[in-house]
């Protein structure tokens, strides 16, 4: 299935995630719930090497980075979750020699077929976003499945048919939906918050979008309040600060 499905049709379903960098606190809940679901779900198992030893590691389909941007006291910490963006033009799919890597025509989810993948790793080289992790114990490539086995799973209540990471995220920084449908909540959110693509220059056309951190409000003029209070209780009177203040209080109480 190496050839990409034609997704150019208007209204073509493009399922994906929208991640709000303004409220992500970097708690790793999405990363762990992703590991938890996928190690028993579609991607089972996600095998960890040396789990209790000196060099524990294994595949995770979602990882949360932290960056600092800006200088000195104005520098900001931005937590940055990163998983597959389910690109519309993903070279990870076209480079795959076996067809194990494919993009679903129906909803655009990019998947690896664990029964046909030969573990050549080429797709991971082709992905600019680091979204593919090789499970060398299993011999196949693993990646975010957009929880394809949750979002359509009839054993769940309708409201639970969302990816594990979205379901878990405590801050509500992760949104899931159809980005191909302009009228969907998620598409509107992207529009309203000026959601952006990662590395648009590479032309992979990610479906997932990131919402930028809102501007900080730590300067005068960023809050409706004035920059400092007029000492109206204590000015224009005589006596010590406390005396002036008590006279103001008296006036208030009798007024």
């Amino acid at each position: 299935m190496t050839a990409l499905p034609d997704t150019s049709a208007v209204g073509q379903k493009k399922l994906g995630l929208v991640i709000d960098l303004d409220i992500c606190v970097g708690c790793q809940a999405c990363a762990v719930s992703c590991k938890e679901w996928n190690t028993q779900g579609y991607s089972a198992p996600l095998i960890d090497d040396d789990p209790y030893g000196a060099n524990p590691m294994g595949p995770w389909l979602n990882r949360v980075h932290a960056y600092e941007a800006g200088e000195g006291v104005d520098a900001q910490v931005v937590h940055f979750p990163r998983s597959c963006l389910h690109c519309e033009q993903p070279a990870c799919v076209t480079v795959c020699p076996t067809g194990a890597s494919y993009k679903r025509a129906e909803d655009g989810i990019v998947l690896v077929n664990p029964d046909t993948c030969i573990g050549c790793k080429l797709c991971s080289w082709a992905c600019p976003y680091g979204a593919r992790e090789y499970d060398h114990n299993h011999g196949v490539m693993k990646k975010c499945t957009l929880c394809v086995d949750r979002i359509y799973n009839e054993h769940f209540e309708a409201e639970d048919r969302v990816p594990a990471c979205v379901r878990a995220c405590p801050t509500g920084a992760r949104h899931f939906g159809d980005l191909g449908d302009e009228t969907s909540d998620i598409a509107k959110l992207v529009k309203q918050r000026e959601g952006y693509d990662l590395l648009p220059e590479m032309n992979y056309k990610p479906v997932n979008k990131y919402l930028p951190p809102r501007a900080r409000r730590d300067k005068a003029g960023t809050h409706p309040a004035v920059a400092s209070l007029t000492p109206r209780a204590t000015s224009g009177r005589t006596g010590s600060l406390a005396e002036r203040f008590f006279r103001w209080v008296d006036d208030k109480l009798s007024g």
Partner: peptide, 27 residues
């Protein structure tokens, strides 16, 4: 890559994991 350059120069603060991973080893 991060799209947050408007906030100023970007640098890594924390890796996602203190442990290694495939990407770090391969790429």
């Amino acid at each position: 890559a991060t799209g947050i350059g408007h906030l100023g120069a970007v640098r890594q603060l924390e890796l996602p994991h203190t442990a290694q991973n495939y990407l770090m080893q391969e790429m």
